[in-house]
């Protein structure tokens, strides 16, 4: 274990790969591992890339990585693909697109499957990012299909989020429905050489303008909401963006057109985060969310253990069915001993 960390910090690729596997599998000791790595993190800039399947994410990531490499920076990439809900198996194909940086060991590319059963994918992703950060990568790119809460949670672990929108991706309503406007710091209309690109750019700009109107009205409540510990991140993000208007950029990832503009925008946003203090604010929210998620998972596990020790959930279900008890009473009964311990510990 200590060896693994030493090797990772010494720049051994094998150790980094193995550490990420441990994180992904939640192998025994992974928590200590991540804990040890934490003190070595904080230097990497984390970029999230999301968008619908076929939007060109992997190709764009490849070009971004290449450009950063040309500047002499090292890059880590985590690409997340769905897994089959039936067999748990998956084919992770994002690597195929990494043509320009293939063979370059200073681009550490890792495919991750969204293993349904393990849950906590956003935690695993955040931890894997930490491993890349501790390894010394300058830029870490997290790539995921933008389809649902899970993905939004993942991409929120990034400092800057770029949302890819292919031209002609439907009317405004579709875009609002996807909820992508709230998470994007930068919008990329990729495949900009296709017809309809101009229109998509225009629609996006319009929607960003209206979004800003919402933000300003919402802002009156923003001050109170921010002080509430439980203020939702989405809300916080909205108030965040005061001072940063999401930008739209056109790219053709296939031939690299517009990639430099995108890199510049990403850098602008990083500067904005640093200078306005929003970066720290976001980091605070992120850590708060991370702690909450871990607490939930740990307490869940505690309860699951207690449940198993008492012979599993089935006997309780039967008693509820027989109307001998009710779900609330069961929950109280199971949580009571834990509650007592906590109280005793606090008083002691």
């Amino acid at each position: 274990m200590g060896d693994l960390i030493d090797d990772l910090l010494a720049g051994k690729h094998r150790a980094l790969a193995r550490a990420i596997t441990k994180i992904e599998n939640r192998s025994p000791g992974y928590r200590d591992l991540v804990g040890e790595l934490y003190q070595h993190t904080g230097d990497a800039e984390v970029i999230g890339i999301t968008g619908s399947p076929g939007a060109g994410k992997s190709t764009l990531v490849d070009k971004l990585a290449k450009t950063y490499r040309d500047e002499g920076l090292t890059v880590g990439v985590i690409a997340i693909d769905p897994s089959s809900p039936f067999t748990g198996g998956s084919v992770l194909g994002d690597r195929i697109r990494m043509a320009s940086v293939s063979g370059d060991m200073d681009v550490f590319f890792r495919s991750m499957s969204a293993r349904g059963s393990l849950g906590g994918l956003s935690t695993a992703t955040a931890d894997a990012v930490k491993a890349l950060d501790a390894f010394g990568k300058d830029k870490v790119i997290v790539e995921t299909v933008g389809a649902g809460q899970n993905e939004i949670d993942i991409v929120k672990t990034a400092d800057t989020v770029a949302v890819l929108v292919p031209p002609g991706s439907g009317d405004d309503v579709q875009m609002l429905k996807a909820g992508i406007l709230e998470i994007g710091d930068v919008f990329v209309v990729n495949k900009a050489d296709l017809p309809g690109a101009d229109r998509t750019v225009m629609e996006l700009r319009e929607m960003i303008d209206t979004r800003n109107d919402y933000t300003q009205t919402a802002d009156h409540h923003g001050a109170d909401a921010a002080s509430e510990a439980a203020a939702s991140e989405a809300m916080a993000r909205e108030t965040d963006d005061e001072g940063w208007t999401p930008q739209v950029v056109e790219t053709v990832a296939e031939d690299g057109t517009g990639v430099d503009d995108l890199i510049e925008l990403l850098a602008d946003h990083a500067t904005y985060l640093a200078e306005s203090g929003k970066g720290e604010e976001r980091a605070r929210q992120r850590y708060a969310e991370e702690i909450r998620t871990l607490l939930r998972e740990d307490v869940n596990q505690l309860v699951a253990g207690e449940l198993a020790a008492r012979g599993g959930i089935e006997s309780y279900v039967q008693r509820v069915l027989d109307r001998e008890t009710d779900p609330y009473a069961v929950a109280d009964e199971l949580v009571a001993p834990i509650e007592e311990c906590v109280e005793a510990d606090r008083d002691g």
Binding site: T87, G88, G89, S90, V91, G93, R95, I96, S111
Partner: peptide, 13 residues
Amino acid sequence: AFRDAGFEVIYSG
């Protein structure tokens, strides 16, 4: 076949 067996498969191209 590997995917259907529940493996995680990375394809190189």
